[in-house]
Amino acid sequence: MEKAIRIDGLNVYYETFHALKNIQIEALPARAITALIGPSGCGKSTFLRTINRMNDLVPGSRVDGKIIINGVDIYDQQVDVEALRKKIGMVFQQPNPFPKSIYDNIAFGPRLHGVTKKSELDEIVESSLRQAALWDEVKDKLKKMAYDISGGQQQRLCIARAIAVNPEILLMDEATSALDPISTIKIEELAQELKSKYTIIMVTHNMHQAARASDHTGFFLNGELVEFATTEQLFSNPGDERTESYITGRFG
């Protein structure tokens, strides 16, 4: 197993509130799907947002400890946040297309990072939409506003937008929770296909989703990472009582 991220003594605070407590992950696997589960407010989103440093944008938030990607601590002074975020795509709970055309949504990232040639952009747009299994549905309306497609399509558009900058890691924060069951399945299938190229970390509230769609699972509770194991092991033979209570539905 190849490792994508190592996390060492990670603590996150909002003002005085201790949101993540001493998180330790020796090896978060590359080119695989890692699911993060846990009750509401336990710190899953916070964890995800520290990986691409989106939490830098929250006033009063503070991070200590290390998140090591490709041998570099991403909280190191030298690290460039914009470059880091280019490497790590993110898909949010609510689809958030920009008020622009479908084409411009996908092209937004590549343009930021210096792609200007029309033919090159066309290519990126097409391949990203294909990877996001959306190409066939929108190829005739690329100039249309991104709001004019369905919620499920918008979410796949956001995935396409994220992979258009060619990231290594894809973070998904409850990316299917605002969608209907069919769209949800589509996105899960999409994740299965994408995992051959990207390291995917997905937060989910749906334990069945974690069980059927992921390779590894981490269980968070009150800011602590209680358990991190292969999905199979965590669901069939949990190493911690609290994990067991949670997955058998006794709390949370």
Binding site: E82, L84, R85, F92, N96, F98
Partner: peptide, 20 residues
């Protein structure tokens, strides 16, 4: 959420402000 979308793609503050 629109700003977040752009930041997550590696946009600078100036780019978020002017392009989004």
């Amino acid at each position: 959420k629109l700003r977040e979308g752009a930041f997550a793609l590696g946009a600078t503050r100036f780019e978020v402000a002017t392009q989004i």
